[in-house]
């Protein structure tokens, strides 16, 4: 009995020394923040925020008093696009998925099991086109592209812009990604489709047609 107790004691002491957080962690600590603290949080662009540029213009830090959405850069260059004014024509056979936060729409092509096309609009530069394209490549365990590589990417005409069009598969040839990033007034529009390579390839033309069909209209 004493032996078992002794071993249990040793385990109890050592286990906390070896513990590590899981890959998905719930946030458990919440504090209250008053208006004074909020007022001490000016809106700056990334370079100004990180001290690589002078502070420049700042916006009032209470967005709910504003009638325009917040750009990430902190400087509004033109009237931002109202997502409600963005329209498209979904290809035949594409089924619209459930509403999800941060997405304008999700589609699942017919006769596919794990393929999904997402339309997302983010305000401001949202990190920039280069970083987002490289982030998509990193999701397939591919290395980053240089600015020259990105300039050499094929373009897809949508919303009056020549949008960078990424079409890549992972090194193992199992997963494919089609992605288009299109600058729009006040932000960036992302159209990204991922899935198994055998499901993706027959959908390529429909994906491109879907992107080209995007247009802005004040009709609801």
């Amino acid at each position: 009995m004493r032996t078992v107790f002794c071993l249990l004691l040793a385990a109890t002491i050592f286990i906390p020394g070896c513990s590590q957080p899981a890959d998905r962690v719930a946030i458990t600590e919440i504090r209250e923040m008053n208006q004074e603290e909020q007022a001490a949080m000016p809106v700056l662009g990334t370079a100004s925020r990180l001290g690589l540029e002078p502070s420049g213009p700042q916006r009032a830090p209470t967005p709910h008093n504003d009638d325009q959405p917040l750009p990430e850069s902190g400087v509004m260059e033109s009237a931002p696009l109202d997502p409600a004014h963005l329209h498209w024509q979904a290809p035949d056979g594409w089924r619209r998925g459930e509403e999800r936060p941060m997405r304008l729409a999700t589609y699942m092509p017919a006769a596919t099991e794990a393929t999904e096309c997402a339309v997302t609009l983010l305000p401001g530069m949202a990190g920039g086109i280069t970083a987002n394209l490289n982030r998509w490549r990193a999701q397939l365990d591919l290395g980053p592209m240089s600015d020259d590589d990105i300039l050499a990417l094929p373009r897809l005409e949508m919303l009056g812009e020549q949008a960078a069009y990424l079409s890549v598969a992972d090194a193992g040839g199992t997963v494919k990604l089609y992605g288009v990033i299109c600058p729009i007034p006040g932000g960036l529009l992302f159209v990204k489709m991922t899935g198994p390579i055998h499901e993706m390839e027959p959908e390529r033309e429909r994906f491109e047609a879907f992107c080209r069909s995007m247009h802005v209209s004040e009709e609801q």
Binding site: L50, L52, M125, G128, T130, A131, N134, R137, D147
Partner: peptide, 10 residues
């Protein structure tokens, strides 16, 4: 910089 972990060229 413009690596995989860059934002707005930083």
């Amino acid at each position: 910089g413009s690596g995989a972990w860059s934002v707005d060229g930083l």
